[in-house]
């Protein structure tokens, strides 16, 4: 599978990732190389093999429904780039 400049642009947009226009070719080349390397996977027959999302055969543990957290807004917002009146600010959102 080879990735072209346009595909790099499309994926970069999906990932909201700024990639310089001049870098698109370079990324396209890198990505194509990686993908063709990855295509070795096609050499093995995996029909009937259950996908393995997780290394251990364990199941989800449940937590009791208890409020354990206290208000730490001040500490959390001390590291935020832009806040006002306790709110995180972003450029205007249009619904």
């Amino acid at each position: 599978m080879s990735v072209d400049k346009e595909a790099v642009g499309r994926i970069a947009h999906l990932a909201r990732l700024g990639v310089e226009e001049t870098e698109h070719d370079n990324y396209a080349r890198n990505l194509s190389a990686i993908l063709s390397f990855v295509e070795q996977l096609d050499s093995v027959d995996t029909s009937g093999v259950a996908p393995m999302a997780h290394p251990l055969d364990a199941s989800q543990r449940l937590r009791p429904d208890e409020v354990t957290e206290t208000d730490r807004r001040e500490q959390f917002q001390a590291i935020a780039p832009r806040v006002e009146a306790g709110l995180y600010l972003v450029p205007k959102v249009i619904e």
Partner: peptide
Amino acid sequence: KAQQVRRLIR
């Protein structure tokens, strides 16, 4: 596909 191969490796 990768997750299936992962099981084979395991």
